[in-house]
C-alpha cells in the first residue's frame, strides 16, 4: 500500500531506515485555479520517524492539508517522492481522522467505528472486540446504537477517532480534528487522544493551526511557510509522556516553546493574511 510517485529526474529513492516511517522528498503539488497555476507545496523534504507524534502547523492556505491528503493517497503529487514503509501483515498503511463531520450519518456509531474493519472483511468476533474496546476508550459504549445526528460535535469526533484507531493502521493521519470544537471539548479530546495514543504509540501526522495544540500533542512540530508550503523550522518538544494537557500548560517550558514557534510562524501568518486581502480586493474589482 506504499504511495510512490517518482519523477524521472530524481535519483531512485534511498532505502528508508527502519526508524523512519515516512520519507518525503522534493514533493511538489500545483493546481490551477481560475486559469493561473498555484503551487501549494513546493519541493518539500520531510522525514517522520516510527512511533512519533509529528505535528505540522502553518497559516491557513499553506498547503498543510494538501500535504496530508497526499500522504493519505487522496491527492496525487505533481512531483517528488512519498515513501511510506510497508506495514507488516495485511494492516492498512494509514487511516485518517478528518476535519469536521466525516462519520456517515446513515450508520450507527458502532457501524461507523467498525467501517475500516468491515471493509477489510475482518472476522466478526475480531471486529466486535476491537470496536468494543475503542468505543469504551472514547466513552461511546452507551451510544453504540445511536445515529450521529443524536450526538454532539465532540461525540461525533470521538467516533471518528474510534474509527481510525479500530482500523489499526500503521500511521494515523489527523487533519485538524478538533478545529470545529469549542475550547472545553477540545481540551478534553486532546487528553483522550493522548491517552489512547499512549497505548498504541502509532506514528501520527497531525495537522493544526493552533500552536497550543501543536506543543501539547507533538514530539516534533514542523512550521510550514505561507504559500507555497515549505518546511520553515522543526522544533523538538521535550515533554515527557504520558502527558496531561493541563499540567503541561502550567510548565514554564511550555510557554517558551509556544513563544518560539509563534515567533517562527507569525511572519507566515501575516503574509498569508496579506495575500488573502489582496485576493479579495482583486475579486471585488
Amino acid at each position: 500500500m506504499a504511495n510512490k510517485t517518482v519523477t524521472a529526474d530524481l535519483p531512485p529513492p534511498a532505502p528508508t531506515s527502519p526508524s523512519e516511517r515516512i520519507h518525503v522528498r522534493e514533493l511538489v503539488k500545483t493546481f490551477t485555479r481560475r486559469g493561473s497555476e498555484v503551487t501549494a507545496v513546493d519541493r518539500l523534504d520531510l522525514q517522520i520517524r516510527t512511533g512519533e507524534f509529528f505535528v505540522i502547523v502553518g497559516p491557513s492556505g499553506c498547503g498543510k492539508t494538501t500535504l496530508l491528503r497526499m500522504l493519505a493517497g487522496l491527492e496525487t503529487p505533481s512531483g517528488g517522492v512519498i515513501d511510506i514503509a510497508e506495514p507488516g501483515g495485511d494492516l492498512p498503511a494509514h487511516s485518517m481522522i478528518f476535519q469536521g463531520d466525516s462519520i456517515f450519518p446513515w450508520m450507527t456509531v458502532w457501524d461507523n467505528a467498525a467501517y475500516g474493519l468491515t471493509m477489510r472483511r475482518r472476522p466478526k468476533a475480531e471486529i466486535r472486540e476491537i470496536v468494543g474496546h475503542y468505543l469504551d476508550k472514547t466513552g461511546l459504549t452507551r451510544f453504540a446504537r445511536s445515529y450521529p445526528h443524536e450526538l454532539s460535535g465532540g461525540m461525533r469526533q470521538r467516533v471518528s477517532i474510534a474509527r481510525a484507531f479500530s482500523n489499526d493502521p500503521d500511521i494515523l493521519l489527523m487533519d485538524e480534528p478538533f478545529s470545529a470544537l469549542d475550547e472545553q471539548n477540545k481540551t478534553l479530546l486532546q487528553d483522550e487522544l493522548l491517552r489512547i495514543w499512549d497505548e498504541t504509540k502509532k506514528t501520527v501526522v497531525f495537522i493544526t493551526h493552533s500552536v497550543d495544540e501543536a506543543v501539547t500533542m507533538g514530539d516534533r512540530v514542523m512550521v510550514m511557510t505561507s504559500r507555497p508550503g515549505r518546511v520553515k523550522k522543526i522544533v523538538d518538544v521535550p515533554f515527557e509522556r504520558p502527558r496531561e494537557v493541563l499540567e503541561l500548560r502550567a510548565q514554564p517550558e511550555y510557554g517558551e516553546l509556544i513563544h518560539e514557534i509563534w515567533g517562527s510562524l507569525r511572519s507566515e501568518v501575516l503574509e498569508a493574511q496579506e495575500r488573502e486581502q489582496l485576493a479579495s480586493l482583486r475579486g471585488r474589482s
Partner: peptide, 25 residues
C-alpha cells in the same frame, strides 16, 4: 465529497462504495 474520501481512505472497494455510501446516502 468527504464521505467518498472516507471510503477511499478506509479501503472501500467499488461495490462497497456502492453499498455503504452511494445507496444509503
Amino acid at each position: 465529497p468527504i464521505y467518498h474520501d472516507v471510503g477511499t481512505n478506509f479501503g472501500a472497494r467499488r461495490w462497497q462504495v456502492f453499498r455503504t455510501i452511494a445507496f444509503p446516502g
